[in-house]
Simulated scan of single mutants.
Amino acid sequence: MTILSIQHLNFGFRGRTLFKDAQMTIPLPGIFGLAAPAGSGKTTLFNLISGLLPSTGVIRLFDTPITPAVVSQNVAYVPNTDNAAGMLRGSDYVAFIAAAQRITRQRQTAVLHTLGVDDFARQRLSRYTPGMRQRLQMALVLLLDRPLNLLDEPLDDVDPASLTTICDAISQLGRAGKTVIVSTSQPDRLVTVTNTMFVFAEQQILEVPSGGTDDLTSASDQRFFK
């Protein structure tokens, strides 16, 4: 069973073509990186996989074309909290997601403690640092407990303690047999969790050969991060 299959993906925005007949396949569970510059379409790709944006391509999850029901059952993707109401507390956001998904209070407490979110959950989102925001995002993904997890730049611009905590949580998902796609505009941070990377080039989604930072740096010097 193929985890994710994208075929003939076409998508443009405001006169700019982001993907043109693009392909992407993840055949087996694991942790995968998606490295591309800011504004190049990483969040857009996650929105397409989640069915939040329409495309002319064919996207399948676990060999099934995406529908709202298929996405709901299989994908954990929580859009960035930057657009959340400034007066909203982290605990309010968690409670909203938990109520919608019928997640027990016991599980909420355990996950928030694992990510250290319980230390600042009562603070307003408008006061969160980048590290606090990404810990909260990671906690929400863990609460959803889906086989495919889309993480939008969870490692970028966070403090060292948050980086370690989030990397540990990502590794935990991998050990549990989940599939994780981690996007970033700072590819050097991705090698802490995976050597399997995808990049954008010429409106395509390409897999970079395993080998860590050296291969990715070489590739980025030529096409990907220019």
Rank of each mutant, 00 (worst) to 15 (best):
R146E: 14
Y128K: 03
R127A: 12
L144G: 01
N83Y: 00
L144T: 01
D145T: 13
A85W: 15
M138L: 10
R102S: 11
P130F: 02
R133Q: 13
T129L: 10
T114I: 10
D82Q: 08
Q101M: 12
H113F: 00
V117Y: 07
A84M: 11
S126M: 13
A98N: 13
I103Q: 06
H113Y: 07
G131V: 03
I103S: 07
A99S: 15
D119S: 15
N80F: 06
A95F: 08
L88D: 14
A110E: 15
Y77G: 08
V78A: 07
H113M: 07
I103W: 13
L88T: 14
V117S: 09
R102M: 03
V111E: 00
D119M: 14
R135G: 09
R107L: 01
R135K: 14
P79V: 07
A85M: 15
D118H: 06
L112E: 01
R105H: 05
S91Y: 02
Q108W: 09
M138A: 13
A100H: 08
F120R: 03
Y77F: 14
D145V: 13
N83K: 04
P130S: 09
T109A: 12
R127G: 10
R124E: 10
G131I: 06
L144K: 11
L142K: 08
Y77C: 07
T109H: 08
R122C: 12
R102P: 05
G90R: 06
A139D: 06
R146F: 12
V111H: 02
R127W: 00
R127N: 00
Y77T: 01
M132H: 11
Q123V: 06
S91D: 05
Y77V: 03
Y93R: 03
Q134H: 10
F120H: 06
D92G: 11
M138R: 04
D118R: 00
Y93D: 12
A100D: 12
A98S: 15
G90N: 02
D118A: 03
D82T: 12
V94S: 02
L115K: 12
F96E: 09
G131Y: 04
M138I: 04
P130R: 09
S91I: 02
L144Q: 13
T81I: 15
T129N: 02
P130V: 00
T114K: 05
G131Q: 02
D82M: 12
L143E: 03
Q101W: 11
L112P: 06
P79H: 04
V94R: 06
F96L: 13
V141E: 02
S126A: 14
R127V: 01
A98R: 13
L125R: 11
A121W: 10
T109Y: 09
D92F: 04
Y77D: 03
I97M: 14
P130I: 05
T114C: 01
T114Y: 01
R105G: 02
A100R: 11
G90V: 08
G86R: 15
Y93S: 08
A110V: 10
N83W: 09
Q106I: 10
R133G: 04
A95G: 06
L136I: 12
Y77N: 05
S126E: 12
F96N: 11
A100M: 14
M87C: 14
A85I: 14
R133L: 05
V111C: 01
T129C: 09
A76W: 05
Y93N: 08
D145Q: 12
L112N: 01
R107E: 05
